[in-house]
Design a protein around this nucleic acid. Structure first.
Lengths: 164, 164, 164, 164
DNA sequence: TATGAATGAGAGTTCATTCAT
DNA sequence: CATGAATGAACTCTCATTCAT
C-alpha cells in the first residue's frame, strides 16, 4: 500500500488522506470505505508490520542451539531488505509518536536470549540480553536512518565478540 | 519551553500551535511574534537541544586517555537526567520526522573514538566505533522509550566488555 | 457569481472568503476546492469579465465603416446594462488594485480607431484615438460610480462633436 | 507620509498597519497614538488630498473669463506632478473602494463650467459640462494608471476642440 | 512621547469525513 | 464498488488594537 510508504517517510500526522489517495491513484472516499478511519488505515498497516515481525521472531524462538539464537538475533538487522525497508521504518518511526510502543512484543526474544546466555554460562544473562536488544535497536536505527554500506562488517565485528 | 515537551512526546505535526499556546498559557499570536513560523519555533528548539548536546560531546572530545574516551561515550546515556530528558527525547524523536537528520553532528565523536580504538590496537577501529555508536543509539532509545530500572547494570556489563 | 459582486463593490482585499461563502450560501471549503486559492477565484472571475469584454470589442473591431467604428466605441458605455453592470464595475475597480492592469487589452480598439481617424483625414489620428479612449474611461467611470440619469444625452452631445 | 504611498499603490485593505510602521521606521503603536484608528489615518490622508483639491479648484472657480475656466479645467490633469502623483492616485483609487465617493465635491466646478458654456452660447451647457468632467476623469485615470508620455499633446488636441 | 510586548478576532487554507449518485 | 461534491472543524498565520513602561 502507498500509505505505508508515505507514513514511513513523512510520519502519520504529516501525511493527509488526500495525499495518500492522490499518490495511490484512487479516490479519497475509497480509503474510508476500506478502512473506516485514517487511524483504521494505520492500524491495518501496523498489522502487516506485526505479521512480518512475528515471522522473523518465530525463526529465532524455534532455534535450539543457544549460539544460533544469539547469532540469528544479531543478524536480524541484515534482514531488512529493500522490500521490507518501509515496513520497518514505519515501525521504528511510530515508536516515537502516538506513544504506541508495546514492550511486550519483544518478550519472547528476551526469554529465549536469556536462556541462551544462561546455557552459555554468561555471568549476568539478563544484562547481556538487554545489551543485545539495545544493540539491535541501534543497528536497526542506523540502517533505517543512514543506510551505511558496511552493515555486514559491523555485525560481523559484533558476532566475533560473542565467539560466533 | 512547553513546545519542546509537546514536540518531543507527540511529534511536530501532531501538535498544533494553539495547543502549544494553550498549554504555555500565552496567546497563539505571541508564538508567531517570537518565532515567525511553526517551523521557526521548531528550529529554535532544535538549537537549544544542539547546544546541550555539544556541551556533553565536548567533554568526551577533550579527553586524552583513549580508555576514558570510550568509557565516557558509553556512559553518555546515563547522563539523561530527569531535567534533560525532554531535550534528548526531542532530539531522538526528530530523527524520524521531518527527515532532518544530520549525521555530521556525530562526526567529532566518531573521530575521537576511532583514534582511541586505534591507540588501543583494536583490529578494526572503524567497525568498533560504529558498534559503540550503534549501542549508544540503542541504549538511548531504551532509556527514553521504556526507562528500564537497571540502566547502570547494563552499561556496566558493556564497560566490562571493553575492559573499563 | 456572488464573489464578482462583492469584489466589484468592496474590493478584493476587503472581502474575505468567509464572507463570500456565507453570501453564496456554500461552505468556505468549497471555494477552495473549486478555485484552489482566493487569487484563483479572482483569476477565474477576471476570465469571465475578459470574455464578455472581448465580445463587445469584437463587434467594434469587425466594423468596416470608420464612422461606425467611432460611434460604436463612444456608445460602449451605454451598453452597461443592469445585467453586465457588475462585470464592468469589477473590471474598472480592479485596475486600481493588485496593479493588475494590462494596457494590451485595449490595443485592438486603439488600432482600429486610429485607422478610422486616418481614413477620415483627422489631423492627429493617434491623439484623437487617445482622446476617445480617455473619454470612454471617464464615461464608464461616471456611469459605474454615480449612475447619472442623462447618460444618453451626454453621449449624444459627444457624437455630435464627431459628426455622427 | 509613508502611508499615503502604500495606500495609493496597494490599496487601503491590502496594506497593514505593521507594514506602514515598518516602512515609516516608527513603531506601530505610534500610528495609533497619532490617528486613533487605521481609518483615522486614512481620514487624515484624505484630508490632505481634499486640501490640495480645493487649492486647484479655487484657481478655476476664481477665473472670470469663460474660456479660461474651461482651459484651466482641461489642463488640470497636467498638474499632476511627480510630487502630487500619490495623493491623486489614492484619491482615484479610493473612489472604487469603501464606496466613499462624494459627488458634491465637484459641484463648484460644475457650476462654473456650466456658466462658462452658457456664456459661450453652447447648445447644451449641462451636457457639455458633464462631457468635460468625464474627460477629466478619463485623462486623470490614464495619467495615473499608465503614465503616457504624450499627455500634453492629447490635452492640446482637446483644447483645440474648444477653440482654446 | 514613543515603544515592545501582548492579544482576540479573523483571515486563508487544509483536514478527515460523509453522502448522494 | 467507487467517486465527486460537499462540509465542519481545525490549523497556521495576520491584523488592528491595547497597555505597561
Amino acid at each position: 500500500m502507498t500509505a505505508l510508504e508515505l507514513f514511513a517517510t513523512q510520519g502519520y500526522h504529516a501525511v493527509s488522506t488526500s495525499k495518500i489517495a492522490k499518490q495511490a491513484g484512487v479516490s479519497e472516499a475509497l480509503i474510508f470505505r476500506h478502512f473506516e478511519n485514517k487511524e483504521g488505515l494505520l492500524a491495518s498497516i501496523k498489522c502487516i508490520a506485526e505479521e512480518r515481525m512475528k515471522g522473523i521472531m518465530a525463526d529465532i524462538v524455534m532455534s535450539t542451539d543457544p549460539k544460533e539464537v544469539i547469532r540469528k538475533t544479531l543478524q536480524m538487522p541484515l534482514q531488512i531488505t529493500e522490500k521490507e525497508y518501509k515496513v520497518w521504518r514505519l515501525t521504528y518511526a511510530l515508536k516515537w509518536q502516538t506513544n504506541s510502543y508495546d514492550p511486550k512484543k519483544m518478550e519472547p526474544i528476551k526469554l529465549v536470549l536469556t536462556d541462551a546466555f544462561t546455557k552459555l554460562k554468561y555471568e549476568d544473562p539478563a544484562a547481556e540480553t538487554e545489551l543485545v536488544l539495545m544493540f539491535l535497536d541501534g543497528a536497526a536505527t542506523a540502517i533505517l536512518l543512514h543506510e551505511p554500506d558496511n552493515k555486514k562488517d559491523i555485525i560481523d565485528a559484533l558476532l566475533k565478540k560473542y565467539d560466533l
